[in-house]
Structure formats: C-alpha cells, structure tokens
Simulated assay, not measured.
Amino acid sequence: MTSPIRELAAGLRFPEGPIAMPDGSVLLVEIEGKTFTRVGADGRVERIAKLAGGPNGAAIGPDGKVYICNNGGFKWHDSAEHGIRPIGQAEDYAGGWIETVDLRNGRVERLYERSDAAPLHGPNDLVFDRHGGFWFTDHGKTRPRDVDRGSVCYARADGSQIRELIFPLWSPNGIGLSADERTLYVAETFTGRVWAFDLSAPGEIAKEPWPQSPNGGRLVVGLPGYQNLDSLAIDSEGNVCVATLANGGITVIAPDGSKVSHVPTPDAMTTNICFGGAALRTAYITLSSTGKLVAMDWPRPGLPLNYLNT
C-alpha cells in the first residue's frame, strides 16, 4: 500500500536537486527561479543564493559545500492547466557548468565549464564517491531541429581534473552509485532506459564490448510506452528509484532489472527523489510543474550518501 503524500512546500519555481539535511531541512534548486533554496523543517522557504543559467542536480561535497550541475538555462512554458515546464534551450544560453555554493555565506563559484573532451552543454545530476570525486551527467540541450549527444564525466571536487568517461548517451539524466561503489547507474530521459556501468577503480569504467554495448554499459531496463526518466536515488536494497515524467511518479527498478514497480504522484513532471529523516525512511520528492516539495514514508531505507548521511 502506498503511503500518503505530505506537502512540505509550495510556490517553488520548478524545484529539483533535493538534499535532505540532518536538521530536517531540505536544500534544493529552483531551475526556473534560478535560486538555491532551503525548505525548513517547519516549511519555511528561504532563498540562499541567486544563480545564473539553470541550476539542476545538487549534492554535498567533501568540503561541506553544495555542488550544483548547471544546465545553462531553459525556455519555459507556464499554463494554468499544466504548470511550468521546460521547452528547450534558453535564448541567452552560453553553455553549462559545475558550480559550488558555500552554505556558510552563500558564495557561488564556478568549478568547471568543460571536460577534457568538450565544453559542458547541459550538466544535469551528480553523485559523490567515497574518494571525494563525483560522477555527473551532461544531458546536453534540445533545440527546435537538433539535440546534443550526452555524456558522463568524472571530476575532482577541488577543480583539478575532469574527464569524459562515457560517450555517447541519449539524454543522460539521473545518476547513482551502488553501495559497494562498483556499479554506476545512469537513466536516459527520452529512451526510458537505465544503464549500469561496472567500475574498475575510482573514476574508471570497465566497459562492455561493442557492438553488444553501444556505450560501454549494460542495459538494466527499458520502460514500455511513453515514460521519460529524470533523476534517481538508490535504496538500501540496491533498487534504482527514478523519477518518471509523463507517467508521473517514482519507478522502482531492481538492480538486475528483474522487477519494476511504480509509485504514482500527482504531477507529470516528477523530477527527483532523495532519502532522509529517521533511518532514511522518508522519500523527499520534487513535483516540479506544480512547484511542490512533498514527502512520503518509504518501504525501505534509502542508501546513505557520502558526506551527508554517513
């Protein structure tokens, strides 16, 4: 039986990138609002920093700063019927980047604007490993007549190194690590696919051979029908819990793809999930087109994140 959904905050401008903090607050970005925001345990909304472009996925790093994937900005459509939704590349778009926000003073700094292979086009989501590096997806940008091919990069938190490890992918979005950090999961938005990549060392992919694998990974699942995938979190049993667009909700996928279930939410633009609260048994979910942060009890604990829940 699905747990009731509890509304924690409303009036947000396309929330994404939630981080459940130990004090009961939730940090997140507002992509359309271009802010880094805190929702207090009492529901009070505080805008910590103003950001340019399109702030997207967020994570706490080893230095305590918040690391943010900035996609460079979207065009937006807003209607009473469907709420807010992105509809392509912003007119003032000039590339994407990785940036940090210092929680002590709100200071914002850019860390990376390109990898060793190419400029960053639309960084989307990220996850830190226990060695202090982070994996992130570059979703690319969509224009009226063409789209970018996406990639996955690995970078050091101190700004000293960034490498493109997986290319090409079609609209890579959510990203997460297994508990033993030997497997990297990546969700593709427009294909409705989740891929798994074996890791041979920190920041190193043990690629599957071509042509069996088009990108070095193995296919975990491809969802049927019209279902687009967004950001994700891993639970304590290794399930990939991925926010699902169009068919709004959270799709729960066994590590080997053998079982797939769906937890519905009342927003077609359900974009992200993170775990927090007592024993990590609360799922915090962003309902982006309606501008809400909600929570629900989860049947399993979430997987602790490096530098946050451990």
Score class of each variant (00 low, 15 high):
147 V>W: 14
216 G>M: 08
215 N>F: 04
123 P>T: 04
190 F>I: 13
120 L>V: 07
209 P>A: 05
141 K>S: 15
126 L>H: 03
154 Y>L: 10
183 T>K: 11
122 G>Q: 06
186 V>H: 04
110 R>N: 13
176 G>I: 01
199 L>M: 14
95 G>Q: 10
142 T>H: 14
163 R>G: 03
111 L>S: 02
138 D>A: 03
202 P>G: 09
192 G>Y: 10
139 H>F: 15
116 D>L: 10
181 E>R: 04
141 K>H: 13
120 L>Y: 10
171 S>K: 10
164 E>Y: 00
146 D>V: 07
181 E>G: 01
143 R>A: 14
147 V>I: 14
201 A>N: 05
142 T>F: 14
96 G>F: 08
128 F>N: 02
113 E>H: 01
106 G>S: 11
115 S>T: 15
179 A>W: 00
136 F>L: 13
193 R>D: 12
164 E>M: 12
146 D>C: 11
185 Y>P: 03
183 T>G: 07
116 D>E: 10
186 V>L: 07
149 R>I: 01
96 G>L: 01
143 R>T: 09
197 F>G: 08
178 S>E: 03
182 R>A: 11
213 S>L: 02
114 R>E: 15
125 D>S: 13
195 W>T: 08
177 L>N: 04
146 D>F: 13
124 N>D: 14
210 W>A: 14
203 G>F: 04
104 R>A: 15
156 R>V: 00
213 S>K: 01
148 D>I: 07
157 A>S: 13
136 F>G: 04
169 L>F: 06
174 G>D: 02
101 V>W: 07
193 R>F: 03
133 G>P: 08
202 P>Q: 05
205 I>V: 14
112 Y>K: 03
142 T>L: 15
149 R>Y: 12
217 G>L: 06
191 T>G: 01
127 V>W: 05
202 P>F: 09
110 R>T: 15
181 E>F: 02
207 K>M: 13
115 S>R: 08
192 G>W: 06
183 T>D: 05
111 L>D: 02
162 I>Q: 03
207 K>I: 00
164 E>K: 09
140 G>Q: 09
100 T>I: 07
112 Y>P: 01
180 D>N: 11
191 T>R: 14
114 R>W: 10
159 G>K: 01
180 D>P: 05
128 F>V: 10
144 P>Q: 10
137 T>W: 11
202 P>D: 07
120 L>K: 04
218 R>M: 06
142 T>I: 15
209 P>Y: 06
133 G>T: 07
207 K>S: 14
154 Y>S: 09
164 E>R: 11
197 F>Y: 15
213 S>G: 08
98 I>P: 00
92 D>E: 12
144 P>V: 13
184 L>C: 02
125 D>E: 12
105 N>C: 13
140 G>A: 06
104 R>Y: 00
113 E>F: 00
199 L>C: 08
116 D>M: 05
178 S>D: 06
96 G>W: 06
202 P>I: 12
176 G>D: 04
152 V>A: 09
186 V>N: 04
117 A>T: 11
192 G>C: 12
99 E>G: 05
161 Q>V: 03
154 Y>H: 05
119 P>D: 07
177 L>G: 04
215 N>Y: 04
217 G>F: 02
101 V>A: 11
133 G>I: 13
136 F>D: 03
212 Q>N: 12
